[in-house]
């Protein structure tokens, strides 16, 4: 593991799950839960003769940023695409559950507790969702995560980070959407249906999954920022993601409600206005929507440096 200071400058995109988890919290505060020395690998992969990993591809830990206890979940895309099975799913679910229980205990024990002393959950996604080798267990774990996200509402803020190679797709695409705040880099991708499946459904002339630029402007960080699906767009270093989390972590939980895209009748009405716009526009390309949002030169938006993009871009308002 590189030194903590070096991790801060390290590319988030290139970092493995543990480097991201360690670098996100303050130096020396990291405690891994169900870590590799516990050897909780997948018994189902073992039966199928598939390589196993001691942490089952999901790093779960607790650390601190300043005064805030931070429960971290970090997915490893290089291990079977960051897919979620029985063990990794249980680790994810129980990390959120532990954060909620800890919140309740702290509130009871410390009547004068401040917002920044209350726990948050941070999930660094890198996954296509369910692991097919244990698909049923993976699917059921997704439902458990959604349940815990709702149970965390108004208590423990849950912050999504997306900036790793695999992106965040499949069932985990809606898990991310259901969290309170979403931080992405421009290399992050968020969606439900992966590009290959869209091509399969619609034909190559409608959606060419090998067109990297097309894939990025449909699901990438800049697009999601314009759509309001990503709250904060940051540079591609662990330190930049950490800084974004640190700023969010001190806020009262009520502030997080304002950042949500879904989770209330009002949010659903707002999304339905966007869907009505989609029906009316029938966009052929994400750029059509960027123009609608007030960006007259959408092609330039892809190429300008990130800081310029953040200064110039108009975000869609419905």
């Amino acid at each position: 593991m590189p030194k903590w200071n070096d991790l801060q400058e390290q590319s988030f995109l290139e970092s493995d799950a543990r480097a991201r988890a360690v670098g996100l919290v303050d130096e020396g505060t990291y405690t891994e839960l169900a870590g590799p020395f516990d050897r909780f690998y997948s018994p189902h992969l073992e039966v199928l003769g598939e390589a196993v990993e001691f942490d089952d591809g999901i790093v779960t830990a607790v650390g601190k940023i300043g005064k805030t206890p931070v429960f971290v979940i970090s997915q490893e895309g290089r291990f079977i695409g960051g897919s979620v099975g029985e063990v990794g799913g249980a680790k994810m679910v129980n990390t959120i559950r532990l954060a909620i229980e800890f919140h309740d205990k702290l509130v009871a024990d410390y009547p004068d507790i401040s917002d920044e002393e209350k726990p948050v959950v941070v999930i660094s996604f890198e996954t296509g969702g369910v692991r097919l080798h244990e698909s049923n267990a993976g699917l059921l774990a997704h439902a458990e995560v959604m349940d815990q996200l709702q149970k965390a509402r108004h208590k423990v803020p849950v912050i999504t980070l997306i900036g790793s190679k695999v992106g965040c797709f499949g069932g985990m695409g809606f898990v991310a959407a259901a969290t309170d705040a979403i931080v992405m880099s421009e290399f992050g991708r968020l969606g439900l249906t992966g590009p290959e499946v869209i091509e399969q459904e619609m034909g190559k002339e409608e959606f060419d999954s090998s067109d990297r630029a097309l894939v990025f402007r449909t699901t990438g960080g800049r697009h999601k920022y314009i759509m309001g699906d990503c709250n904060v767009l940051v540079h591609n270093t662990i330190g930049a993601f950490r800084e974004a989390v640190a700023k969010l972590a001190v806020l009262p939980v009520s502030e997080f409600e304002k950042m949500r895209r879904i989770g209330s009748p009002e949010a659903v009405e707002r999304q339905l206005r966007a869907v009505a716009l989609a029906a009316e526009m029938q966009p052929q390309d994400a750029r059509d929507v960027w123009v609608k949002a007030g960006n007259p030169d959408p092609v330039a938006l892809t190429d300008i440096p990130l800081d310029e993009f953040l200064a110039d871009v108009k975000r869609l308002s419905v």
Binding site: G173, L192, T218, I262, Q271, Q282, A286
Partner: peptide, 14 residues
């Protein structure tokens, strides 16, 4: 494609 541009993940999550 339109579903991904606008975010089908939000509808099912909602």
């Amino acid at each position: 494609k339109v579903e991904e541009i606008f975010g089908m993940n939000k509808a099912t999550g909602a």
